[in-house]
Nucleic acid binder design. Structure first.
Length: 824
DNA sequence: AACTTCTTACTTTTT
DNA sequence: GTAAGAAGTT
């Protein structure tokens, strides 16, 4: 086992001697031009180098700038050598950006900052060094979710449980959750032990044992193992504590318990830890993030300096005001108020639509109008400058459909990532078995892909053979073939596969790196002795000879050509690596979306995916109760869930630089069933004076109180102006001037946005109660005829003859005798 | 063993 | 409404 200091000595010696190190260059007085562009708060965050610092950085306040300047400053002042800085991010993208920007500031590449990376990448690096302390070998493999599920399925089956009642997915979720909380099987609480049909703890323990047997770990283990190691080996921990003089953490509000413990252990030495985050942007609670970590920072690190970055450089005042107003409804915030030096800007726009398709149509027209510059007062916006941010990915389809028909180019971000695609994982599984013949999970994945006549029976036989002989699945299969256990198609198929695998492996042997620890930072250009066959050729050979390529060529699914394309891309990606092994190591951690798009396109993505991004024009559709805030979130996590949804709304609004448009639909098809939708309560939390309402009031409820109860009655009805009444055009259902104007507005896209003088003076609740009384027969375009059961402000509870009871906004129905008047 | 029909359940997602 | 997974059929 290599001790830490030996490693360091080795690495220090191996450092190129012909180039002055950053710290050498940093000796003596150096100019600090990078400090000049900072505002006072940023500067304080950058210059407070010693002791714990919490940087509360609101959206768009230049947090990455401050973070990267801080690193540059640490190096520049000679406080730390590049490798004495530990800088952690959540995503590879963020890590890359930080590296690039520090390099930009320093005017040179910063390869020396070896400990800048994601939590997982850094933990892998550490764990490879100390794997034996948790019973693993240094070359352990990292399982992805798919492998994980397959393994758990086997365990559940072995435990004789009903796979339907006790799905492996659910168990995987539980185990992930425990690992996020740094709970090993031994540390599980009583309730958790009994989870999953009383088998929670047992199965978890079995799973961990299986992982150890396979010399593998999952993503959660990377963190958890390191925490365990540090907790059990104080001497080792101390070395690391001494080593990392300065620690920086990005997106601290997203850390889970394991990550928190890991950080806290490492920071106990020098206590120079700088955590950057925004409690208002904590949107990953559902995957174990603990907002509590950031809320507790000052207690964890007494004497911590708290710096607030509140000057926003991204959005207009109206956008900021809307975001602030929404988020202020949350309790227990650390408190921050964004402000901007900007004066001008558009109001946040709010519009309601009849249904989801209408919403998509309108957004499409708006995007085209923005693009062609026909929107008066506003500049032209390229498609790249516009984005649609949805709560859930299924909302994307309506927009895709619409954009396809009108020929508006778009890009969807957040689909299945390249390396998560079926064909890529299959190919990778082939590579894995070739490199490590004992990789049972990979072997299992490919043994019958393409079809080799291996079914449940044959597979079970192979499993048993392997187990009784105590060998890998591949060897078990070999024995099963020799012993005549397999018959017919399966026999020939498996025999051929094994021969092929053996041959590929032998071709691969000379390529396996001897140093074992493949460093992802290793220079990729390093020339190796050209093997008889390059790893790229080998990969092509594997895919061709195995029949895998042929399988997709013969497949007549419309997506097969795409899959073949992806396989070609995979082979191309290989070229950047020395060998297959190095490539696999890289891929297991870096699940990047390697898509080089061309041309201008509108971006469609989820709110989660948009965190950290910004767009001049942002559309936020689907602000409806149940969809956003998501019903499930509220059901599962109650008030906490609602607040996280609200933070998501905050994230969404603050993505917009110049124009933010929120919309909702009154009707939406959910799981194939038409449902009437109520406007989101978040809409009521928007500040009226900063909102431009493009909607006839009936569509959203006229003012406050769409869903948050009472607000409407006590506000509008009692004569207390909520602000929206004056701004909106008055309408009374389908035939109202307001509704007509909305329709025509979207047809002539050049119409000015802020012409909305009221034509009537009655508010819609007055109208609703004036027009409808309990017992009235009404007609609704989608639900047909029904009877009014209850009145609630502008909303009616209606018992529909065919669709049952529903609560909806009054303007969606007309008296039954006016049914024929309903347009379209 | 492979193909077909039926049931069921359904956020958000990085590593 | 759809996609995945399980049961049922060839």
């Amino acid at each position: 086992m290599s001790s830490f200091s030996e490693d360091d000595a080795f690495e220090a010696a191996a450092a190129p001697a012909n180039r002055p190190s950053l710290s050498q260059m940093a000796m003596g007085a150096r100019p600090t031009p990078y400090l000049d562009g900072l505002n006072p708060a940023q500067r304080e965050a950058v210059e407070t180098l010693d002791g714990p610092v919490l940087m509360l950085a609101g959206a768009g306040t230049g947090k990455t700038k401050a973070l990267t300047c801080r690193i540059a400053h640490l190096l520049n002042t000679g406080r730390a050598r590049p490798d004495e800085i530990l800088a952690v991010t959540f995503t590879n993208k963020a890590a890359r950006e930080m590296k690039d920007r520090v390099a930009g500031l320093m005017g040179q590449s910063v390869d020396g900052v070896r400990w800048l990376g994601t939590f997982h990448a850094i933990c892998v690096k550490q764990l490879r060094r100390h794997a034996e302390l948790v019973g693993l070998k240094s070359n352990f493999t990292i399982l992805d979710t798919d492998d994980q599920i397959r393994l758990l399925k086997q365990l559940i089956r072995a435990a004789d449980m009903d796979e339907k009642r006790w799905p492996a997915r659910q168990l995987a979720g539980l185990i992930d959750g425990w690992k996020n909380k740094a709970l090993t099987p031994a540390k599980l609480g009583a309730a958790d032990e009994m989870a999953f049909n009383d088998k929670g703890k047992t199965l978890y323990a079995q799973y961990q044992q299986r992982l150890k047997d396979l010399n593998a770990c999952d993503f959660g283990d990377l963190l958890l193992h390191m925490v365990t190691i540090f907790q059990n080996h104080p001497d080792l921990l101390e070395q690391y504590q001494r080593w990392y003089k300065y620690i920086l953490v990005d997106e601290y509000q997203d850390t889970n318990v394991s990550q928190y413990l890991w950080l806290r252990l490492l920071a106990q030495g020098h206590r120079n830890i700088c955590c950057v985050g925004d409690d208002d942007q904590s949107i990953y609670g559902w995957r174990g993030a603990e907002v509590g970590n950031i809320l507790r920072f000052e207690k964890d690190f007494p004497g911590a300096k708290v710096v607030r970055l509140e000057q926003n450089y991204r959005s207009t005042p109206h956008i900021l005001a809307a975001a602030s107003s929404v988020i202020s409804a949350n309790a227990g915030r650390l408190g921050k108020e964004l402000w901007t030096a900007e004066q001008d800007g558009e109001l946040v726009r709010l519009i309601g639509h009849w249904d989801g398709e209408e919403e998509a149509r309108w957004v499409g027209e708006e995007i085209e109008a923005m693009h062609s510059g026909t929107r008066s007062r506003l500049r032209k916006f390229s498609l790249d400058e516009q984005a649609i941010l949805v709560r859930a990915s299924h909302q994307m389809r309506a927009f895709e459909d619409r954009f396809l028909t009108i020929g508006l180019p778009y890009r969807v971000i957040g689909g299945p990532r390249f390396y998560e695609r079926l064909e890529i994982r299959d190919a990778m599984a082939y590579f894995r078995v070739v490199i490590s013949p004992e990789d049972d999970l990979a072997f299992e994945r490919i043994i019958n892909v393409p079809k080799r006549g291996v079914g449940d029976k044959a597979m079970a036989d192979i499993q048993i053979t392997a187990r009784t002989n105590g060998v890998s699945l591949k060897e078990g299969a070999r024995i099963a073939v020799q012993d005549g256990l397999l018959k017919g198609k399966a026999k020939t198929g498996v025999a051929q596969l094994i021969d092929q695998l053996d041959r590929w492996s032998s071709l691969c042997v000379q390529q396996i790196r001897v140093d074992g620890v493949a460093d992802e930072d290793a220079v990729i250009e390093r020339d190796e002795e050209p093997a008889e066959i390059s790893h790229v050729e080998l990969a092509e050979m594997i895919l061709d000879e195995s029949g895998y390529t042929t399988m997709w060529q013969n497949d007549k699914n419309p997506d097969s050509p795409g899959r073949l394309e992806n396989l070609k891309e995979l082979v191309k990606a290989l070229e950047a690596f020395d060998n297959l092994g190095g490539f696999l190591e890289h891929v297991s951690l870096i699940m990047d979306n390697s898509s080089e798009e061309q041309g201008e396109m509108v971006t469609i993505m989820t709110l989660h995916g948009a965190k950290g991004l910004e767009f001049p024009v942002v559309f936020l559709p689907g602000w409806e109760e149940g969809l956003f805030p998501s019903q499930r979130s509220m059901d599962e996590s109650g008030q906490k869930g609602l607040e996280e949804e609200r933070r998501l709304a905050y994230v969404g609004i603050t993505r917009a630089e110049e124009l933010c448009t929120i919309s909702f639909a009154g009707n939406r098809r959910v799981y194939g069933q038409w449902q009437s939708q109520l406007p989101s309560r978040f809409i009521d939390e928007l500040p009226p004076e900063h909102v431009d309402v493009l909607t006839p009031p009936g569509l959203y409820g006229g003012g406050y109180g769409a869903a948050s109860s009472g607000g409407f009655d006590s506000g509008a009805a009692s004569g207390m102006s909520t602000g929206f009444e004056d701004r909106v055009s008055k309408a009374d259902g389908y035939n109202s001037p307001g509704w007509k104007r909305l329709q025509s507005r979207s047809q002539r896209s050049g119409a000015a946005t802020n012409v909305r003088s009221g034509s009537g003076s009655m508010t819609i609740d007055a109208k609703a109660s004036a027009v409808f009384t309990v017992g009235d027969r009404v007609f609704h375009k989608k639900f047909g005829y029904g009877q009014v059961m209850e009145l609630d402000g502008d909303k009616l509870t209606i018992d529909f003859d065919h669709s049952g009871e529903k609560k909806l906004v009054a303007s969606f129905v007309v008296p039954a005798d006016k049914a024929s008047d309903v347009p379209f």
